[in-house]
Design a protein around this nucleic acid. Sequence first.
DNA 1: CTGAAAGCGCTAACAG
DNA 2: CTGTTAGCGCTTTCAG
Lengths: 367, 367
Amino acid sequence: VPAHRVTIADVAAMSGVSVATVSRALLDYPQVNAKTRERVAQAARALGYLPNRAARSLVLRATQTFGLLIPDATDPIHGQLVAGFEQEAAAAGYTVILANGFDSPERERRALETFVMHRADGIALIGSILSQPEARATVRPSPIVFVNGEHPSLAGNHSDLPTGCIRADDALGIDAAVAHLIEEGYRRFAYVGSPGYASDLTRRRAVARSLKRAGVVGRLQVYVSRAGAWEVEAGLAASIAGDRPDVVLCYDDKLALSLLNALGKLGVRVPQDVGVVGFDDIPFARLSSPGLTTIAQPAENLGSRAAAMLLDAIKTGTMARSARLPVTLIVRESTRPSGRTSGAAAQPDDRATRRITPPARGRSGAR
Amino acid sequence: VPAHRVTIADVAAMSGVSVATVSRALLDYPQVNAKTRERVAQAARALGYLPNRAARSLVLRATQTFGLLIPDATDPIHGQLVAGFEQEAAAAGYTVILANGFDSPERERRALETFVMHRADGIALIGSILSQPEARATVRPSPIVFVNGEHPSLAGNHSDLPTGCIRADDALGIDAAVAHLIEEGYRRFAYVGSPGYASDLTRRRAVARSLKRAGVVGRLQVYVSRAGAWEVEAGLAASIAGDRPDVVLCYDDKLALSLLNALGKLGVRVPQDVGVVGFDDIPFARLSSPGLTTIAQPAENLGSRAAAMLLDAIKTGTMARSARLPVTLIVRESTRPSGRTSGAAAQPDDRATRRITPPARGRSGAR
DNA sequence: CTGAAAGCGCTAACAG
DNA sequence: CTGTTAGCGCTTTCAG
């Protein structure tokens, strides 16, 4: 066993053939002699030979590598996306290069450049705050997909580019949530946002629109949480406790769970005094007490779908249309108007989750 | 702007110099003429040239790349590790290749091979179930670090290899927790484990040892949860509810939070009826109600430390000694014996968290 | 200070 | 069926 990294030449020497034959044998070219192939395989195994991808990439002009940019691996929802993406990519023989953007445009740009230097065959941007044209331009000609893009231009009712974008259909989920809540008797709605995210604005507007469409009068009360991801300001909880809306929809589950906690400390009962709704359905949403009603984002699917789109683009040469993946309203205890929930320990698991999947839109393309 | 990927030759052509000069100019070799350097830089910028890492790796015999294997990106604690690792690596100009092992030895092996094919300059294994010698052998001669290794041989009081291993000092944290709990008056201890993890056995034994050392009589009651990561079997919660130990220490926070939830549904009050302690201090541990007492693992530090060790090994040529990072006992409401916690809304935040950092051991090397 | 040339490890024609 | 040869894009002697 040589001291240096073993190369194809070592295998060739050991099996007494040329490097070309080794290459062909290892790549299972049909025209190599069975015995030769076997001899080569044996030598390769004996030497622990594994081909150098850099060398191979150079000649093939393909790296079998994807670049994946996420805002922050710490967030459970991003973790699920990563898992889905990595799994789909790995299954197709692709390796994933990961970069955290931390919501900073400079870091995101640097990450894109890294991907380009590695000549990633495909690139996925999760919750990126870069504009789609800019990102496209810097990675060209590699295919690129945007998942839940957060560039300011995407806020509200503006739309993704017609191709290569994937996102959860927030609006549809919010429609379902609002409809459900109204049916349950809620009237005074509030929204707690996390400023700076395009999807925050989108969700807020979707709530307002749903309410208007449903004929609920009165302005949507809006609160803003500027605290870190895992907490809400004491003042925020206090003013909600004071205003006592019927129900508050939160930008995401982290915010909702933090609020749940803060309200509890203030002695505000959920759902009796105020209902709380989250967004994402992270695993902890069902572990809080009360369990959190939320709009489930198909995080892992978003991830695997992103990888699948890249794979497809590589195969066919054209990027698929943008898509909106369906969400599911998950009703737990944080939105059960008083009295409805009876005997506590009776059927502990039956009183639990209700799932409502909104009917799909006409087509899943861009709006 | 050429249609194909721009190469160093394009830059050379545009700036009217040889490729060698372009290379030197871009690498800031001191001996290139200032004007030439400027002309080259301009051309490179104009063309959007970014050097091909594969080509560079080939000649430099270094890829500026780290391989990172985690069990599952979905777990918040792993997410934090990834974040810490990626940040430290990126700061030093290294790119991270990520692979999920999903607790499967085959997948882990495949991941290691991928890292080798990419000729990663360093490799970090988080919670790997592979044996350290095997892993070392397959990636040789790349430096490799093991973070919280989970190979069966590491269970109980067996120890890591003397070099290249990092883990949280579970035992010390458990000592602190047990001491605190005893002081608070708890006597009948139980442990809920998640079978199959080496650290599960380690923690269980550490609890038993701490109890013995503290002179607590009676056997440690042990429960086992075989359900998925985010739930406990109804039967498990029921038997704990029936046995009513004073306090139950859980393998990790996910398990503890699930148990908290399950006990709540059974009408068992925490901490009045039974105390609950977790392990990790994931962000949600402070959002549950009651807040979860737990042993905080320095997840992000473990990640950045792993990257730092690899960087150091690359620079110095030798891998640093194994290390145990300190943990912190975080006392929240899930272990407050009845009565202690008075006026609810009085000082909502002051009654909160207490942090206890165990004194460091003599040295942080392997035991 | 700059250019020519060799070569990193591998695959893909092109001849045998 | 197999060997020879020519690069892939880049860095680095070695000469000017």
